[in-house]
Amino acid sequence: MKLKNKNKKVFKMLVAVVGASFTITAFQNCGGSNDGSNNAALDYVEQGETPVSPIKVEKTDKILHSRNVANALIQGLGVQNVSNVNNLDPIIQAAINSELLLSEHGDYDSITGGQITIHAGNLAEVACERMIFYSEAPKLSVVENEIKDERRFFKGLYIGENAASATPQVPVQDETKYRQAIQRLARSLWGRDTTKAEEDLVLSAASPILLDTKANRGFRAAVVTCTVMASTFDFLRQ
């Protein structure tokens, strides 16, 4: 009986030790099986598919390319054809005209000239103009003395062609509201939030325009703000 109890104790200790070893080593990635099954579980397999563990590799960025730049601008900025106004054709045509100077395959190697940022800027300007004039501006209205602002980006700002129509509730210039517009554009175009330094930089492009006396300074400043943000590598690098 004494021997049997001793054997039971030894057996329990053995189980405890083996179990502890497995637990300790498993979570340090050198568990009982060396097939990396913990990492292979990160491969989302279904129906008997074979998992593959992650492999370390030096990734290169990809970049929007060819005519896809036009589509990305249209989708990212929400440009639509409105009534009988064709807003998409000019953007697509501009992309086709610039095709040889944009990346061909979506990699940096196939950029053929240093002019990519210039052409990206041109495309962005075309898209931004049409977005602001045809999509944003009409979504600001006054209904029974109440301002109805359904715009996506430049909420609370006057971005029309006649600065005299601006009101205290919808001014041409307001730093807080402009920063919010930049933040909304960044989320749509860059897929992230801005830093204060980035906002300062973009504002510095729009501010001189807002300070001049031209009637359409609100519209022009909005176009410049949008263009600057839609022609960066943060947008092209998708």
Binding site: N71, Q75, G191, F235
Partner: peptide, 29 residues
């Protein structure tokens, strides 16, 4: 319209990255 008060979570960012990788179209969060 983007809600600036909503924090961009890692899953939101991953979702957008996957969507763009598969469609080539950046869309808002």
């Amino acid at each position: 319209v983007e809600n600036l008060n909503q924090e961009i979570t890692p899953q939101m960012k991953r979702a957008r990255d996957l969507y763009i990788a598969l469609t080539g179209s950046p869309i808002p969060f």
